[in-house]
């Protein structure tokens, strides 16, 4: 059933809440867990916005998150939305400062957000396909691309995604739905690009 999402929602939620509480109290190990759990997602989201500069954007976002975490109020879901929002803002700043450019990821950003040690050929392929998949999503009108990324990749629910985007939930639903329809059409047109290695 679930693709690449090992934890059930409930497990995730409880765990995140708990880890968040500890991190807020200053627990470094907990912070690291937060980072490892969320960074890959926000990195991908950032990639859909700024392409190969995603790592810089995500890094900046995390500095902010780390700095403000002790004063953060909210639960795990709120935290995820918060981190995503910060990332988004940094990405938009990036656009403002350099101008928006087409997202080109294929060969540049290979998502090295994995332990460097476990580097196999298969991994390389995986990373590449991740980059391609994101690049494809990024070809959608931004509104749709963001809705799809936030929902499907970052893992936010509609309400959280709406909050991050500053839109009504209904608008986010529609945008994501349209985005998927376009993607489906695009996929039928191409030879299946990255018939993804599902994460599990």
């Amino acid at each position: 059933m679930r693709e690449g999402r090992p934890l059930t929602p409930d497990q995730t939620r409880d765990a995140l809440d708990d880890v968040l509480a500890r991190a807020r109290a200053g627990d470094e190990a907990a912070f690291v867990r937060l980072y490892r759990a969320l960074h890959p997602r926000v990195l991908r989201y950032a990639a859909s916005l700024v392409g190969a500069d995603a790592e810089d954007v995500a890094a900046e976002a995390w500095l902010h998150v780390a700095r403000d975490l002790p004063s953060f109020r909210g639960d795990g879901d709120g935290f995820r939305a918060w981190v995503t929002t910060i990332t988004r803002n940094r990405a938009l700043d990036h656009h403002r400062s350099r101008g928006r450019r087409p997202v080109v990821l294929d060969d540049v950003l290979t998502f090295t957000d994995r332990p460097s040690g476990d580097d196999t050929a298969a991994d390389a392929v995986e990373r590449l396909s991740t980059a391609r998949a994101i690049a494809l999503v990024a070809t959608l009108p931004r509104e749709q691309a963001e809705a799809v990324m936030l929902r499907a990749v970052v893992g936010l629910d509609v309400a959280a995604a709406a909050q991050v985007l500053g839109k009504q939930p209904g608008a986010v639903r529609v945008a994501a739905h349209r985005g998927l329809k376009r993607l489906a059409a695009e996929l039928s047109r191409r030879a299946d690009p990255s018939r993804g290695r599902a994460a599990l």
């Binding site: 994995r114 995986e126 999503v137 998927l180 990255s194």
Partner: peptide, 14 residues
């Protein structure tokens, strides 16, 4: 195919 695309976008479990 969409499932595959989204799974690829999500990437592997870190």
């Amino acid at each position: 195919d969409l499932v595959g695309l989204l799974a690829a976008a999500r990437g592997p479990q870190p």
